[in-house]
Nucleic acid binder design. Structure first.
Length: 560
DNA sequence: TGAGAGGGAA
DNA sequence: CTAGATCCCTCTCA
């Protein structure tokens, strides 16, 4: 029921405002994220944005317009402006109105609404992919992806029911090899797998699954391989991750080592299950335009392609992906946010977001550790402030991020959490070296050899050292040990993805059930503050609250 | 034959 | 855009 005591207002421009301190807020947030995204989250009043893409994602998991509106009204202070309601209805209901289906040996585009057919005729860019005969819109199978991409770009999502090639069969079964028993999956993992693979449903078989770090995304990939029973190509973003996939497949499925190939710079093998990197595939000889390794997509009859860390998928891979629309495609990520605006390509070519479980829900159920986030704000010293003001905008962020005043806070936090496993994470090597010199804790950067990294990680794991200082290596390293405390001293501009990744380091469940603490150190009234706010956005969207502290450890507010 | 440095790319 | 990490390839040296 609409009521003035509710927390939500839909504005005339279509944005949604919600009172973040309201008792109904966390419930409302979970609902709003079903069809919108968080735009701004200042204290007190949060803004959400609805776009065609956010609505299509919600349609793809089954929301209808009427269901959405009736549920929305139960959180609203006032009725939704009628022109906004009409706009949303139009956008949402486009999903499913244009269907691509099999028709003999070719494909056919069918309209459930004649008006849409008329609208689309006017779009020049799709003409090359259409052959209109006897009132039927025929599409060549090889144009399946490009047509979908062009139509999506024009604002018309295509509901693809043309089905998949099964690929070459490959028996795969989940099993706990160590104990010789079937592998037991967590309930949400089973649900994610079932959502992807629906028997007899041509639309089951492509899409993106979003799950926090430590929630077992690899196992979901393996579970889907078990459902598909076919040869599989797995793409990921670095070699450590390639090796990790291989190890998990050997440990947790019936597949033997010789059925798994890795395809990277130093070692190239194509086997029934092959694991490669995005950089391998996007490699081009300098000065040429060919991608010599794209052929990997045709080396075997893959029935499934898994895109690990799909938020990092580079542009050329989208192009190949457009050509393999008849192959099942699974995207995995902890945070489906891109700062380059290619979300639409992920949606169009890999698939919509089909499964997404809020981080806080997994926390409540005990699958990931409890975590509290802090933003500690401090001043910039007089001398530094002068330097900041006279610096070019390009350098200002760095000056603020490297604020020497952060040192004292780090010292205090290290003392406060003495005895716990602590990661200090930052973006500037110079700053990290200073911290390492001050604390005596070892520093790991991209320069550190794999051997040394491994030995430090082991010492940290065994508790021989309790503080580890890490650069951006922490963003990519899958083998970085986990901790219960993280101190973020600087970060990559506005990267939400990075912040999510860093908190993720603290989320492996703790044996003693302890709470993890994530500290973000920010210099007041500088660009550092601005970027920090942007970085926090993904986690606040997930329901994490940042407790704002001043230098003296006094609580001064909340960001939620 | 393999290790290691260096360049280019995204 | 930044700064940094990573991966690919090629070249050199033993």
């Amino acid at each position: 029921m609409i009521s003035y005591s509710n927390p939500v207002i839909v504005l005339n421009d279509g944005n949604i405002m919600a009172e973040s301190e309201h008792v109904l807020y966390s419930e409302a947030r979970e609902f709003l994220l079903q069809f919108s995204e968080l735009l701004k989250s200042p204290q007190g009043l949060h803004t959400y944005r609805v776009t065609p893409l956010t609505l299509w994602n919600s349609a793809s998991i089954g929301w209808t317009f009427d269901l959405l509106m009736s549920r929305l009204e139960s959180y609203c202070k006032f009725p939704v402006p009628s022109h906004i309601e009409a706009q949303w209805k139009e956008w949402l209901e486009r999903y499913g109105k244009i269907v691509l289906e099999k028709d003999g040996g070719t494909l056919r585009l069918r309209f459930k609404d004649e008006k849409l057919e008329e609208k689309i005729i006017g779009h020049q860019e799709i003409i090359p992919y259409i052959n209109k005969k006897n009132g039927k819109w025929r599409v060549a199978p090889r144009d399946r992806g490009l047509l979908k991409q062009k139509l999506l770009g024009a604002g018309f999502p295509v509901y693809d029911l043309a089905g998949y090639d099964d690929g070459k069969p490959l028996p795969v079964f989940l099993r706990d090899k160590l104990n010789g028993v079937p592998l037991v999956l967590r309930p949400y993992q089973v649900k994610a797998i079932d959502t992807f693979y629906r028997e007899g449903n041509a639309n089951g078989g492509n899409g993106v699954i979003v799950l926090p770090c430590g929630a077992g995304k690899t196992v979901i990939g393996l579970g889907i391989m078990e459902k598909c029973q076919c040869e599989t190509l797995i793409l990921t973003n670095n070699t450590t991750s390639v090796l990790q996939w291989k190890r998990e497949i050997i440990e947790k499925t019936s597949l033997a080592e010789d059925q798994i190939g890795i395809y990277v710079g130093t070692w190239k093998e194509v086997k029934p299950v092959t694991i490669s990197t995005y950089q391998m595939l996007t490699y081009r000889q300098t000065g040429t335009t060919r991608f010599p390794h794209f052929s990997l997509f045709n080396r075997r009859r893959w029935g499934l392609v898994i895109y690990d860390e799909v938020h990092l998928l580079p542009a050329p891979i989208f192009r190949v992906t457009a050509e393999i629309q008849a192959t099942r495609r699974l995207g995995l990520t902890a945070a489906l946010v891109r700062e380059d605006g290619c979300e639409e390509d992920v949606f169009g070519l890999v698939g919509p977001k089909i499964y997404d479980i809020p981080w806080r829900k997994l926390e409540k159920e005990g699958w990931i550790a409890k975590a509290v986030c802090y933003e500690i704000r401090m001043d910039l010293g007089e001398k530094e402030r002068e330097k900041y003001l006279s610096a070019s905008p390009k350098h200002q962020y760095r000056i603020a991020a490297e604020n020497p005043g952060k040192m004292e806070v780090i010292r205090r936090l290290l003392k406060k959490h003495q005895g716990e496993k602590i990661l200090v994470i930052g973006q500037y090597i110079h700053q990290l070296k200073t911290i390492s010199a001050m604390t005596g804790a070892p520093l790991i950067t991209g320069e550190t050899s794999q051997l040394v990294r491994e030995s430090q990680y082991n010492k940290f794991n065994r508790g021989e050292i309790s503080v580890l200082i890490v650069s951006k290596v922490a963003n990519f390293a899958v083998d970085l040990p986990d901790a219960s405390i993280a101190i973020q001293v600087s970060g990559s501009f506005g990267s939400r993805q990075e912040e999510a990744q860093r908190l993720g380091r603290l989320l492996r469940p703790k044996t003693d059930d302890r709470t993890s603490h994530f500290y973000s150190l920010v210099t007041k009234q500088t660009k550092d503050e601005e970027f920090a706010l942007r970085r926090h956005r993904f986690l606040t969207e997930q329901g994490y609250q940042y407790i704002i502290m001043d230098e003296k450890d006094e609580k001064v507010g909340f960001l939620s």
